[in-house]
Amino acid sequence: MSDTTPIIRMINVSKLFGDFVALDDVSLSVAAGERVVICGPSGSGKSTLIRCINRLEPHDRGRIIVDGLELDEDMANLRSVRQEVGMVFQQFNLFPHLTVLENLTLGPIRVRRMARPAAEALARQYLERVHIPEQADKYPGQLSGGQQQRVAIARALCMEPRIMLFDEPTSALDPEMIKEVLDVMVELAGTGMTMLCVTHEMGFARKVADRMVFMEAGRIVETAPPEAFFTAPASPRARLFLDQVLEH
């Protein structure tokens, strides 16, 4: 942990979908450079939690402050927050009608107002970082799932964000492609990036997480360092979950 002032602060945040309580009075602070892995059974609100941080889901109650900016109806504020927060989705969500390079340069050119040559140089640099510089001129449909997800990571990094959110980045991948994506994420963790990651990859969590957050039914049930969490989870619910996930 390089910094002690939290870069993300969520204070008593609630989110409802109709009658369904997706987040129930959740509070969480994340320090700059910290790597947090969020786990829990499906439907527990993990995805909703990180989707609230870049306001893909507007929260209903409580406060969310990202890098000193409070998330509210104020649009200008929101766009500068979104520049600071990169996101990687389960389904990659690459733009199929654009080449890999165009996928990567769209944000820098349109949002950061970079000139095309500079944006392309930046894009190639990040493609190098995710180990697929040779795929720049292909379309996403021509790549494997693992390659697509790495392009998606590079696309988020091209905005040079301070925070990266990962929403189950390996869940849609064939098993043999999970490693190449996790390797890239481990390397990224090594650079001191603030990361919030929803994943079921417990090996990855053990390797990079500074802190484990366990959620159930829209609440944070347990927060602990990985060693403590994996060896002696405090809550019975977390123990049961770990038994199920780690069994095989």
Partner: peptide
């Protein structure tokens, strides 16, 4: 056009007009 396309564009910080112009409409028009 799948919802995720808009979400990815929004997460990048693209304005509504840019989301439509560069991401949604080109795919929809096809």
């Amino acid at each position: 056009v799948p919802k995720g396309q808009r979400e990815a564009a929004r997460a990048m910080g693209l304005s509504w007009t840019d989301q439509m112009r560069f991401v949604v409409l080109p795919q929809a028009m096809r």
